[in-house]
Design a protein around this nucleic acid. Structure first.
Lengths: 297, 297
DNA sequence: TATTTTGTTTAAATATATCTAATAAAAAGT
DNA sequence: ACTTTTTATTAGATATATTTAAACAAAATA
C-alpha cells in the first residue's frame, strides 16, 4: 500500500508543496520514486510525517526536528504523550491491557477490563483506562511499536465491551433531547463516538447512532424527517483546515435547526470559524457537563 | 462525493474501457463532466452500474439491460433477489425490522430482534433473519430505496447484538484450532465476519478477530508469532479478478502454513485460481459444516 | 531593524490518467 | 460455420497531477 503526495496531504494536513520543500531543505522524508520519478510514500513515511507535524505543533522548529535522530524523536514523542495518571494503578492497567493485546490474549484482556469496569463503572473506566489506552495505542502506532493488527484486535475488544454495556442498559423514558451521532466519510475510529452514545443513554437522551463513514449527502436526505436536537461528530484525523471548514459549513447549512457538537483534533478544530450553533467539545469533562442536564439547549 | 472512472473500475470490477463503451453504445451511464471533460460519477451512477453488472451476470445482455426503463430494471432486481423463506414468518420479521430501521426506531427493532434470537438462537436467527435482512438492505441501497444512514443505523444495531452475544459466551477450553479473522483493506462490511467469530466460538475454536481494513503487510508482520491453523476472510465487493488473484496469492505466500477460508462474492471468487490450501466457503451451510468438527484439518 | 527560518506562489517541464476513435479478438447466438 | 454482440487493444490528443526551481511573502528570532 502506497500513498501519493496528494494522499499524504489529505492524511497530514500539510500542503504537498510544503512536504516537498521539507524534503529538499531538511531531508524530512525520503520517499520511493516511481519509474517516472513520482514520489511514493508508505506507512512508515506517513508516520514520520505525522510525528514531525506533531512535534512542530508542540513548538519545535522543523529544522530542529529533522536534525534529530530517530531515537531522539522517539524520546520527544514519549515526553509529549506521556500522561501519568494521579493513580499509578490506572497506568498499570493500561500497560497490562496493551501487553495482552500485543500477545492477542483475549481472555486476560477481558478479565482485566471486566474487573476495572466493575470497579469503576464504564464511564470512569473509559476516562481512566480506555481513553489513555487509545491515546497510547495511537502513539505506539506512530512510533511503529505496534502494527494495525494489534490495534484492530484491541479496538474490537473495546468495541465489544461498550456495545455490550449499551445493549444491557435498561429501557427508560427519554428526556426529550434527541441526538444524532456519526463520523464523516474519512474517519474510522468510532470508539469515542460509541462511548458518547453510552454516556448520552445513561443520561436518558435519545440517541441515533450511525457510526463511521456516513456520507453528508445521506445526512441531508434524512435530516428533515429526524427532528434531532443535537448532532455530534468527531474530526480526529489531521486535515487541511479549508477542507474541514467546508465540511462544517455544509453540515451547518444542512442541519441548521440542530446544535452541532464537534470533538476531536484540536489543531484542526481550533482553527475553524465556528458558526453560532456549533459547540466545540475539547475534553471529556466538557462533554460530560454538556450532557449532564437533560434540559439544556 | 464523486468518483473517477478509475474508482468506478475498482468498485465494480468493470474495466474503464468497458464502462466508456457501454456509455457510448448503450447510454448505460451518464456521468457529469469536469471543466476539462473528464467523467465524474456519483453514488447514483455507481449503483446503476452495479445493477447493470448484476443483471448481466444473471444472463441478460448489456444491450437488453440498457434498453429497459428504470422501473423494469427495479422489477428484475426484485425478482433476482427476492428470496422467499420456507417460513413466511421470517419474511415478516425482516420486513418489520427494516421498517423500524427506516424510522430509526431502535426500541422496536431491539424488541423484535431479541424476541427472534430468544426463539431461534442467534445462529438460526442469523440464517433466517439477519442474513436475509442484510441481503435486502444491499438490494435496497442499490435500488436507492434506502440511504447509507439507514444502513449504518441498522448495521450497528445488529453489530451490537452479535458483539453482546459474543461477550456473553461462557469461557471454555479451546479445541486447539486457532482461527484468524479479518477483512482486506477495501472491505467494510464486517457483520458476516463477526457472525463467523460467534459461530467458531460456539464450537470452542480459538478466534482472533481483527475486523475490517487490516493491511496485508500487518498480517505479514504478525503471522509468524501467531501460529494460527486457519485464516478466514471475506471478499464481498466486486473487483477486478487479477487484483483479487494478486491479493490471494500474496496472502497464500504469507500464510503458507495456515488453511485459508474465503467467502463472499462468488462472481469474483469463482474465477480465482485457488491454491491447494484455500477453501472457498460458498454458503452458510458449508461454513457450518467446515467448523462443525473441532478436529478437522 | 535586520536576519533567519519557514511557508506560499509562480513557472515550465514531465508523468500519469483520461478522452475519443478505430480495430482486433473473443464470446455468444443462430 | 457464420453472424452478432461484447470485450480488449491500440493510438494520438488532451486533462490533470507531479516535479524542479526560483522568487516571493510571512513569520519568528536576534
Amino acid at each position: 500500500m502506497t500513498y501519493s503526495i496528494a494522499d499524504l496531504e489529505q492524511l497530514s494536513g500539510i500542503h504537498s508543496h510544503t512536504i516537498r520543500i521539507w524534503e529538499q531543505r531538511y531531508h524530512a522524508l525520503s520517499p520511493l520514486r516511481s519509474q517516472g520519478n513520482t514520489r511514493l510514500y508508505d506507512d512508515q513515511q506517513l508516520r514520520k510525517l505525522l510525528n514531525i507535524v506533531s512535534l512542530n505543533k508542540s513548538g519545535l522548529k522543523i529544522s530542529k526536528i529533522c536534525s534529530l535522530s530517530d531515537s531522539e524523536i522517539d524520546e520527544l514523542l514519549d515526553q509529549q504523550f506521556y500522561y501519568s495518571s494521579e493513580d499509578k494503578n490506572d497506568d498499570y492497567y493500561v500497560g497490562e491491557l496493551i501487553r495482552y493485546g500485543l500477545a492477542f490474549n483475549e481472555q486476560s484482556f477481558n478479565q482485566l477490563i471486566d474487573k476495572s469496569i466493575e470497579q469503576f463503572g464504564l464511564a470512569d473506566c473509559y476516562r481512566k483506562i480506555i481513553y489513555p489506552l487509545l491515546l497510547r495505542l495511537g502513539l505506539m502506532w506512530r512510533k511503529d511499536d505496534i502494527c494495525p493488527a494489534h490495534e484492530h484486535f484491541l479496538s474490537n475488544l473495546i468495541r465489544q465491551k461498550i456495545f455490550t454495556h449499551i445493549n444491557n442498559l435498561p429501557l427508560a423514558a427519554h428526556s426529550g433531547q434527541k441526538w444524532l451521532l456519526f463520523l464523516p466519510e474519512d474517519e474510522d475510529h468510532d470508539i469515542g463516538l460509541l462511548f458518547a452514545s453510552y454516556m448520552l443513554r445513561m443520561q436518558h437522551h435519545h440517541v441515533i447512532f450511525l457510526g463511521s463513514k456516513v456520507p453528508l449527502d445521506s445526512i441531508k436526505r434524512i435530516f428533515s424527517t429526524l427532528k434531532v436536537d443535537h448532532i455530534m461528530l468527531f474530526m480526529i484525523k489531521s486535515r487541511l483546515v479549508p477542507a474541514a471548514q467546508h465540511y462544517i459549513d455544509e453540515l451547518s447549512e444542512i442541519c441548521s435547526t440542530a446544535k452541532i457538537h464537534l470533538a476531536g483534533n484540536s489543531d484542526v478544530i481550533g482553527k475553524l470559524n465556528h458558526i453560532d450553533h456549533i459547540h466545540w467539545i475539547g475534553t471529556l469533562d466538557e462533554f460530560e457537563k454538556t450532557i449532564e442536564s437533560p434540559l439544556h439547549t
